[in-house]
Structures are given as structure tokens and as C-alpha cells.
Amino acid sequence: MTTDQPGRPALQVRDLSVTTRSGTHLLSDLTFAIADGERVGLIGESGSGKSLTALAVMGLLSESLTATGGIRVSGHERNLIGEREGALSRLRGTTMAMVFQEPMTALNPTMRVGQQVAEVLTIHRRARGAQARERAVALLDQVGLPEPAETAHAFPHQLSGGQRQRVVIAMALANDPALLVCDEPTTALDVTVQDKVLGLIVDGVEARDAALLFITHDLAVVSRVCERVLVMYGGRIVESGPVGQVFAAPRHHYTAGLVAASALTGPRGGLSAIPGTVPSAGRFPTGCVFRTRCAAATSECEIQPRWDAAGAQGWACHHPIGAS
């Protein structure tokens, strides 16, 4: 087996592109890395490619899509793109794990939840039989489910949405993954439950020194959970950097629009939406993907802007905010 190389990030994505059979680009040239123990948010409107990025990292893209580029996780030497399904299956649930958006449908309705948690241990031969069942109960206890032994015997429909999401988190953390991918894990939950579940995720990855890729469209959630943020639009990363810095002083006009729309630090204090709507896949313009909705766009924007960086913050814009 492979060994961990010191200094190598938990997740390294290089020039990741995803295309359909007809050649439509859904993701274009994504490059980012997440270090061990680092918590990175991925934000953007619906249709900007966030979930697709998560599925590509997990190797769970629909077979009608083609991924190119490089995806590497710590503990596995080879590129995950083009890797055999058997090897990917061994990595999923161990090295990398995922929490999905919809807790109501993420669990098998005909299997007891304890069994579903124990399965993550048994398929990777971490435990079996009674031992796996005991560990499952302990995991359910860790994610704060009351009466874990009874809950293990319950079927998903007997649990609330928040409880089900806790079960999914227990499954994801069961084998101490090096990378946890969360796709809008609290969007479907009551506001009162959201914060507890977020705390659970943060505590879970901190305790394991795991890397976190956290997808959301809620900027407040990113501020609560993440240290660094990637802003996505039109299948591209348009800006990245430390959360506080990016939200306080966005350089890309799309990021600025998002920040204004969520009224976190918006100058007018009221709700301000980004004009226009997200084009459907394949309808994004050439050059800067945001230029059709951008107030600052000029003819120069018909050329793909290059990546600029200042310190930890980076952006892809011909007319960055704050430039003289």
C-alpha cells in the first residue's frame, strides 16, 4: 500500500474539467488544494458547478460525463481520474467520505440505521458482526443521537431530518477519513438544528485532523465553518482566499454580488440581488464567464482573464474591485 508523504495536501485538484458527451464544459480548469485539517468552503449560486465538483472528487460522476485533469488524495499515489472502480471503492468511505444535501432520502428506507452505519465498517473490513454493531452504536452516540442503542434499531422514517443527517455524518466519519466532502449538509434542515449539525461536522473533522470541502450557498455558514473559501461561477473558480478577507474585500464582481445579496456587509444594508440569472450549462459566455451579468464588463472581458493573486487571495478578473 501507499504511504503518506509529509507535506502533501489531503486533496489536490489540478486542471479538473468535466464535459458532457456533446462536448459541453460543465467544469473548466479547476485547481485547488486542501491541507490536512483545513476547512474550505465552496460557494456560488445553483448551477455554478459546486455539487458536480464534489461528485468529481468522490469519483461518483454519472457515466455520461467525462472528467479530465488530476485529483489526488493523500494515501493514494495515483490520479483518481482514470482510476479503476475497485480502487475508488476502497478509498470511498475510508480516505474520503461524503455527506449529502438531502437527509430525508440519503438513507436506505428499508434498512435499520445501525446496520447502515455498521456497513461502512464491514465493507472496509474495519470490524465485523457484533463488534461492528457496537461501534455503530458508539458512533451514533458520538454524533449526539439520544439513546443510540434504540436509534440503531430504528428505520430512517422514524427519525427527524436532523437525526438522519447525524446518522449520515456518523457513517461518513466512521473510518476517520482524511477528506470529508459536505454538499449543503444543512440546507434542508430547520434553522434551529443547522447550527448543531455544523458544530458536529467541525468537531468531527477537527478531532481527526481531516480536510473539509464544504459546499453551500449560505455565506453565513461559510463564515461559521470554513477558514478559506472558493467562489465558483459557470464551472470555474473565480475567486479564492481566507473567508474574512474575501467577504470583507472581494476582488471579483461576482463575489461582491454574492456578498451584497446575502447582506452580510452590503453597503445598502438591504437585499441586493445579482442582476440576471445563472445561464444553463453550456450557455456561459466565452472569456470571463460572468461578463454577461457584470456591470464592469468591457470588450476586454471576452478574453479569459488570468489568475491574479495578492497574498492568500486570488481572483480571475480583468477589472478587479479595488484596482486603481
Binding site: 461518483l60 472502480e85 470511498r92 468511505g93 432520502t105 438513507l107 434498512m111 465493507i123 457513517m171
Partner: peptide
């Protein structure tokens, strides 16, 4: 098309394993 089948894959089951363990009964 069900989400729980994707969950099963994310746990580390192969497509066939996920179908046999989680799909067929449903």
C-alpha cells in the same frame, strides 16, 4: 436514481454491491 444508492457508493460499495445490498429490496 435514488439518493441512498449514491450514499451506498460513497460508503465504498461498488455499483453492483450497492445495487445488491440497497437497491434490489427497494
Amino acid at each position: 436514481r435514488e439518493d441512498y444508492l449514491r450514499t451506498a457508493r460513497a460508503k465504498g460499495l461498488t455499483p453492483v454491491g450497492a445495487m445488491v445490498r440497497h437497491g434490489l429490496r427497494n
